[in-house]
């Protein structure tokens, strides 16, 4: 199915819904892996908004990406509870081991910061391809990353 057909399908699904823009953008990102600029105008037309309004909403929220991620997404929590359990050191070690920084994509792997996964009583916390990891360590995460990207 091409982009336009898939988008038309998503727009039809949300027709008449109150405050439909965020649900539409979530579906677009789930379908395409990011929110391509090409969808701004059709979404704006469907919701009777200006293109700038759609662009403004996409750019406001951290979740909406303008480019796809690597096949594997590793999220590392930077928030206070994880810091209290050595989270910053864990992130630094992992960055060194993987040769990349938070916010970067290298090969198949995207490394991202996240601010709280609600796992504050089993910190530090991370997420590897959607799988939550509590009581994390750099070594354990490295092994998990090696496993998923093998």
């Amino acid at each position: 199915m091409n982009t336009n057909d898939r988008l038309a399908e998503i727009l039809a699904l949300h027709r008449g819904r109150e405050g439909a823009l965020l649900p539409i953008l979530h579906d677009v990102q789930a379908a395409f892996g990011h929110v391509p600029e090409a969808v701004y105008q059709p979404i704006a037309d469907a919701l009777r908004l200006g293109r700038a309004e759609v662009a403004g909403v996409v750019s406001f929220y951290h979740d909406f990406r303008d480019a796809p991620t690597g096949r594997h997404v590793i999220k590392l929590c930077r928030a206070e509870a994880c810091q209290s359990m050595g989270g910053a050191d864990m992130i630094a070690r992992l960055e060194t081991a993987l040769g990349m920084k938070l916010g970067e994509t290298k090969g198949d792997v995207t490394l991202e910061a996240v601010f709280c996964l609600g796992l504050c009583a089993c910190a530090p916390a991370a997420e590897v391809d959607g799988q939550l990891v509590g009581r994390a360590s750099a070594a354990r995460l490295e092994a998990m990353i090696a496993e998923v990207s093998a």
């Binding site: 965020l22 649900p23 929220y61 979740d63 909406f64 601010f115």
Partner: peptide
């Protein structure tokens, strides 16, 4: 249910 988009 409505889902946020990563904005604290």
């Amino acid at each position: 249910v409505r889902v946020g988009a990563g904005a604290y």
